[in-house]
Structure formats: C-alpha cells, structure tokens
Design a binder for these strands. Structure first.
Lengths: 135, 135
DNA sequence: CTGTATCCCGACTGATACTG
DNA sequence: CAGTATCAGTCGGGATACAG
C-alpha cells in the first residue's frame, strides 16, 4: 500500500519509545521554546504557560538525560541556569517541525471528523461518547 | 538559531494536541500495522503483541473518531469487522515515518546519553535516578 | 469473532510548602 | 533564582467477566 514501509515488529517499538519520550504533555513545547535560543528556568516557565515548576523541572531533566538539552549552571548568586538544545535536540526539533506542519494542515479535518463522529448517534455502538472535541 | 521556526504560542498547542492523539501507547503501532493494508480486529490484536482487547478497541475508536481509520462491519455471522486507514491516516503514516527515521537513526545516541547521565553521580542534583534505560 | 462493562492499581501531574 | 519534598487527585491501562 505504501512503499518502503518500516520493519513493523522492530522499528515500531523504537518509534513508540521516542513518542513516549516526546509525546508527554510538555516536552515538545519545551523543545520548541528552546529552539529559539537558550533560556533560563523561569524564562521557560513563563513562556510555556500552563506548566508547573515541578513539571518543568522533570521535563528538563528528562530531556537532559536523553541528551537533547544541555544544562549549564553559572555559579553566581543568585544562581543562573541556562538550558539550550544540543545538536541532537536541534535535529529532533527539525523532525518535530514536520509533524507540526502535518498537524497544522490537518487539524481542521480532524476536528471535522470528530464532530461528525460525535454527532451521529448511528455509530453502531451504543453511545455515550465522552470528550466533546477537546482538540 | 533555526530558520523558519513555528509560531510557538499558537502552533505548539496544535502539535501537542496531535501528539496527545498519536503519542499514546498504541496508536502509532496500530496505524503502522494498518499501513500494510486493511486488517480485522483479532488480526491486529495478534500483530500488535502486548495490546489488550480493551485498549485495541479504545485505540481504534479514537482513531476512527479522528478520521484516521475507517471501520467497516460486514453483517455476517460470525461478525467480520475491517479496519483500514483513511487518506488522512495514510498521510499521518507518512509523517510518522519521518519521525521513525529520526528515532531509528538517533536511538543509539539517546541510549548513550542516558547511560552517561545515569552513570555520573556528579549531576549536580542529589540523586536517585529512576528508570534505568527503558529505551 | 467482536466487542462492552467493571474493578483496580500504579503512574503522571498539579498544588503547596520548604531550601540553598 | 532555581530548584526539592510531599501529598492528593486523576487517569491510563491491564485483568477479568459477560454479551450480541
């Protein structure tokens, strides 16, 4: 159906694992924010909007652990910590941008599909569809 | 730093939303499996490996709701239900393949970064790193 | 064969308070 | 400023049993 398809049994896992890594609530937003240059902790905190201090810390730790972000501490007082994308992080950002384009381009269609699905009571299954179009 | 970057405040959300959609534990695997052609329920169930009946149902419902998968019931006995990717689903698959290539190409580097991170006790923070290389 | 309905547990996440 | 610690609530997801 589609040419050059991936070795499903092996590579699917890899993709799923990567998605588990970046597919959480905050990683992508964080990476994208860092895409416009190095940022400090509270700078990120303000720009990411809904994120809690705790989750920003955890997200940055995770990204750092995976070599996507560098953490630099300047031993001044008050302490200054800078986060910046590594080369690996930058390459991920480029890839994510591909997904971003798809998302932006196809969101209307997805929203429409949802409304269609949620609207018709004749879906075959008995009903009570929750989640009224959170996208 | 990186040219042509996306409008962070607006589009990030869209990407995050899409990631919430496909970033769950089973959606990508399901989509990729369906990439090689229409499949029946238990056929998918066998090929996806760890998935439970419940989660396959929920995943397929979600994909159907978002217009990524078509569900066709043949009113025979025993019932036969076929799932296939829509055009939208196919286009998503192509995009995901980009991510897949990145994942496959960079997994070694990520794994290495993790070992480095987990190995050094001199990370600055006090310690007790959980998740010993699940990737 | 293709689902639906419950129960239940652990993980994720937010809120809040405290520290160097 | 840049975190860490703790507690509590929500939710994803597995196991199991049942149904058309």
């Amino acid at each position: 159906m589609i040419p050059g398809h991936i070795r499903v049994t092996t590579d699917c896992r890899t993709v799923t694992e990567i998605l588990s890594r970046i597919g959480d609530k905050w990683s992508v937003q964080t990476v994208v924010q860092l895409g416009s240059g190095p940022k400090r902790f509270n700078e990120l905190r303000r720009q990411i909007d809904g994120i809690s201090q705790r989750m920003l810390t955890l997200t940055l730790r995770g990204l750092e652990r995976d070599g996507l972000v560098n953490r630099t501490v300047f031993p001044t007082v008050p302490p200054r910590v800078e986060y910046r994308l590594t080369d690996l992080g930058c390459s991920l950002l480029k890839t994510v941008r591909g997904l971003a384009e798809w998302a932006i381009e196809n969101r209307p269609e997805i929203v429409a599909a949802r409304q269609r699905f949620d609207g018709t009571a004749s879906n075959g299954h008995t009903g009570d569809e929750r989640r009224s179009a959170s996208l």
